[in-house]
């Protein structure tokens, strides 16, 4: 197998696996059961999506996609931090309401 063939096959297999991983993590987002589980699955989903975009960068040879991948990783981190603070503040508010 020539290098170019191997590369095209490997990126195809990786895209299929990452797509499958995205679908599986959506299952956890839907069934929950707590908000923490959903946030965790969303965080994992952004990391997987980053890998997906990176694989597309290799497959198409357009390295602009790499910037999108890195921006996605940054966005996922910030979103998770914001969600964690939201979970904390929501709990504090509930405690304040209870007599």
């Amino acid at each position: 197998m020539s290098p170019a063939d191997a590369l095209s096959l490997a990126t195809l297999i990786a895209l299929v696996m990452l797509g499958l991983a995205l679908l599986i993590s959506v299952v956890r987002i839907i069934i929950g059961p707590t908000l923490g589980d959903r946030v965790l699955a969303l965080d994992l989903m952004t990391v997987i999506a980053m890998g997906f975009v990176g694989t597309i960068a290799i497959r198409t040879g357009l390295m602009l996609y790499l910037d999108i991948a890195i921006a996605l990783a940054l966005l996922g981190f910030l979103a998770t931090v914001a969600f964690a603070r939201y979970i904390l503040s929501r709990a504090a508010m509930r405690k304040g309401d209870a007599p």
Partner: peptide
């Protein structure tokens, strides 16, 4: 370099898949 990159790519995709399976299969948060 291309063959090594292919192996890294497939390993990375495999670990991502395992992470997703783990998030669904494991019992608690």
């Amino acid at each position: 370099a291309i063959y090594a990159g292919c192996i890294l790519l497939l390993l990375g995709a495999l670990f991502s898949l395992i992470a997703a399976i783990g998030v669904v299969r494991l019992p608690d948060l």
